[in-house]
Design a protein around this nucleic acid. Structure first.
Length: 485
RNA sequence: GGCCCCAUCGUCUAUCGGUUAGGACGGCACCCUUUCAAGGUGCAGAGACGGGUUCGAUUCCCGUUGGGGCUACCA
């Protein structure tokens, strides 16, 4: 036995959209394995389709990976920059006889394909150009006739021991002589991938299930190029709730969408990791990136496609929201608070302790980062808005509520200190003196202080608000109630 | 159509031949409680079907059915 060499892994997205959650999960598994084994995680942008590739997409991929915390170890490789090597590799295979020139135009091919389909036959390139006499090939090449390079698929079968599926075998007769170089001398996907993976020294190719049928072609290419085969592993797809491949019509599918929805990167990564992978046995599903690395193993990779459940993602996010150290949560919330016009960076920095206490209060009742911001208004604004439903329910009888609030205000104003225990004791005593239950005091008070029917515990609210503002809010409410009676 | 992959509660999963088939999300009920969350407890809910192999199959094999992917001079 030799000591296992740490693998060189890569994530190779094409910049034709945004970073899809499926792609993000593929990247994550590659990254986790690299971090777990001391291997190397590489990033390659497959921009050979110039018509569809955009700089925006490339940027979205970088931003998405960075947001998720998936860093890559070497300089990003842009596939488009390797054109000359792709051509040289193709030329080598032409020289060795592994590929041949094909003069069939795509129009002809399309026509033949349609005819075959009309006859309900499976279309496969018939190798007619491989049968051309060498002299004719020479003549047409000299005449400058456009042509592609096709790989001559040998007889036999192609198989590999897939990291997640075990042995997968394809009879070569089912693989057509595929194009590797277009007539404009640019490489086709499979060829560019193999050429680059060889050049980058990739030893383990982990990618989506949808690439299984590309793998035998790529293996043939490795062999024709005389290169050492990497290990292959095919991850199951992620489906929408309807069981179909996740796509735009399922709603948010880009990781950027979730970032904007208020999902934490920790939660996204945690959720994605558990889609198609399980550490096995009993375990706490809420895990940090570090814990994921620790627990990760290719043994736990599943074969079945999984359905993306936004509900569970939200739950997962709520868990992370509550468990994250406040120092780590703060930078996720602060920009949103500032953007909402509730506070300034200086203000928050100046009362950091107060701010952290408030965050701790609000995050328990939040699933999304935005939920925190949505609840924060009453603690920052000078004036509050009254929720109509809350008013209708808790201030139903102004003539009763108003004097109770006045008594509450006076009781609070007379308190020796501004501590929850003191407040509770005094207000419960007040309730008893008034012959009402605590709720009759607390609920209208909540509306007076926050304008809302729901909030953190009322004493926590008063501490967060401070004595002056609390008393002022109650006085404001009394005045408002006076106009309602 | 051809080739390939897949198959445990609605969803994510545990189980590596012997379990009352366990957990999580979601749902429902209850508890806690000044509201809402959080938390706690409980309930409902699964081995697609048919053959084998075996003393014994969710688990191994074959078939059927169902789902998915690929089938370009896209990636």
């Amino acid at each position: 036995m030799t000591a296992p060499t740490p693998p060189r892994l890569r994530f190779a997205p094409s910049p034709t959209g945004y970073l899809h959650v499926g792609g993000a999960r593929t990247a994550l598994f590659n990254w986790l394995l690299a971090r777990k084994t001391g291997g190397t995680f590489l990033l390659r942008i497959e921009d050979t389709d110039k018509a569809r590739s955009t700089d925006d997409s490339t940027r979205a991929i970088f931003e998405g990976l960075t947001w998720l915390g998936l860093d890559w170890d070497e300089e990003v490789v842009f596939q488009g920059a390797n054109l000359e090597r792709h051509r040289a590799d193709a030329a080598r295979m032409l020289a060795s006889g592994a590929v041949y020139r094909c003069f069939c135009t795509s129009e002809e091919l399309t026509k033949r394909r349609e005819e075959a389909e009309a006859r309900k036959e499976a279309f496969k390139y018939d190798r007619r150009c491989d049968l051309l006499p060498p002299a004719e090939v020479q003549r047409r090449v000299s005449a400058g006739e456009p042509h592609v390079l096709r790989f001559r698929v040998p007889a036999g079968e192609t198989a590999w021991d897939d990291l997640v599926h075990g042995v997968i075998t394809f009879p070569n007769k089912d693989i057509e002589d595929f194009v590797i170089l277009r007539s404009d001398a640019t490489p086709i996907y499979n060829h560019a991938v193999v050429s680059d993976d060889i050049a980058m020294g990739v030893t383990l190719v982990m990618r989506g299930d949808d690439h299984i049928s590309n793998t035998p072609k790529q293996i043939l290419l490795y062999q024709a190029l005389g290169a050492t085969l990497p290990r292959f592993g095919h991850l199951p797809m992620i489906h929408g709730t309807d069981g179909k491949k996740l796509s735009k019509r399922h709603g948010a599918t880009a990781v950027g969408d979730y970032q904007h929805l208020g999902i934490l990167p920790q939660a996204m990564v945690n959720f994605l990791a558990l889609l198609g992978w399980s550490p096995g046995g009993d375990f706490d599903e809420v895990m940090s990136l570090e814990q994921l690395i620790e627990a990760f193993s290719t043994d736990g990779l599943l074969r079945k496609a999984s359905v993306f459940d936004p509900k569970k993602l939200e739950w997962m996010n709520g868990q992370h929201l509550s468990r994250l150290p406040l120092e780590a949560l703060e930078p996720r919330v602060t920009p949103l608070l500032i953007a909402a016009g509730l506070a300034t960076a200086d203000d928050l920095a100046a009362r950091r302790d107060w701010y952290f206490t408030l965050l701790d209060l609000l995050r328990v009742r939040s699933r999304l980062v935005d939920d925190i911001v949505r609840q924060a208004g009453p603690y920052f604004r000078d004036t509050i808005e009254y929720d109509a439903d809350a008013v209708a329910k808790q201030w139903k009888e102004p003539a009763v509520v108003r004097p109770l609030l006045a008594a509450t205000r006076e009781t609070l104003a007379a308190l020796p200190d501004w501590a929850p225990a003191t407040m509770e004791e005094a207000l419960r005593a007040l309730a008893e003196a008034q012959g009402v239950g605590g709720g009759k005091i607390f609920q209208p008070l909540r509306v007076a202080l926050t304008g809302l029917g729901v909030s953190p515990g009322i004493f926590d609210v008063m501490v967060a608000l401070g004595r002056a503002r609390t008393l002022q809010r109650i006085a404001d409410a009394e005045a408002l109630l006076g106009t309602m009676g």
